[in-house]
Amino acid sequence: MSTLDRPRLKSIPSAPTGPRSAKQGGPRPAVGASKGVAEGVPIAVRPDPHAATPPRPNGRFPVAWLRICAPRPAAPTATSRCLCGRDRSAVGHGKVLALIADHENHRDACPLRAPQEGRAAA
């Protein structure tokens, strides 16, 4: 079959006739220069939500959190979390009230908040 008998295919490009040098890229930004970001993309670095909270000026910092969500038509929900590893949740009026009381009791019994006595303190 000769080249004249074959149909010409659109997807096959013609081969280059000789060697060519590659195109050079544009100038690179200097160190610290703005790299340019898409519009609407925040460039500020946000704090890590999983990082420990820094102490306040008085030396205290949060250890336990109680989050309560009570939308009008739905049942209320609550979560109780502590840095000691305690993580509990409740759904419904009675269970949420019980979790609030349990969270208050944990505040007094938490090993991170309760002062240690004797040899364990040393």
Results as ranks from 00 to 15, higher is better:
79 T>V: 12
52 A>T: 08
97 L>M: 10
46 R>P: 02
61 F>Y: 13
104 E>G: 09
29 P>M: 00
45 V>F: 06
29 P>V: 02
84 C>H: 09
110 C>E: 07
62 P>R: 02
112 L>Y: 12
67 R>P: 02
32 G>L: 11
66 L>T: 06
40 G>L: 14
44 A>R: 11
71 P>I: 05
91 V>D: 09
42 P>F: 07
10 K>N: 02
83 L>T: 02
104 E>P: 01
56 R>E: 14
72 R>Y: 11
69 C>Q: 13
13 P>Y: 04
69 C>N: 13
65 W>A: 05
79 T>R: 11
97 L>E: 12
112 L>C: 05
35 K>R: 12
103 H>P: 00
72 R>T: 03
42 P>T: 05
9 L>R: 07
7 P>N: 01
24 Q>R: 06
38 A>S: 04
119 R>I: 12
87 D>Q: 14
8 R>V: 11
26 G>R: 10
79 T>G: 01
31 V>P: 01
33 A>Y: 10
17 T>R: 12
73 P>G: 00
81 R>N: 06
55 P>A: 08
108 D>S: 09
33 A>K: 03
103 H>E: 05
5 D>L: 15
114 A>P: 03
117 E>I: 06
60 R>T: 11
77 T>K: 00
72 R>N: 05
7 P>W: 08
90 A>L: 05
20 R>S: 07
88 R>D: 10
36 G>R: 00
122 A>Q: 14
21 S>E: 13
59 G>N: 02
113 R>M: 14
16 P>E: 06
9 L>S: 04
12 I>C: 01
43 I>M: 12
82 C>T: 01
42 P>L: 13
112 L>N: 02
68 I>W: 05
91 V>K: 08
8 R>T: 04
10 K>W: 10
63 V>T: 09
20 R>T: 10
80 S>G: 08
23 K>E: 06
45 V>S: 04
62 P>E: 15
4 L>Y: 14
63 V>Q: 11
110 C>A: 00
66 L>A: 00
87 D>F: 10
24 Q>D: 10
91 V>R: 11
89 S>F: 13
67 R>M: 05
52 A>L: 14
81 R>Y: 09
11 S>P: 00
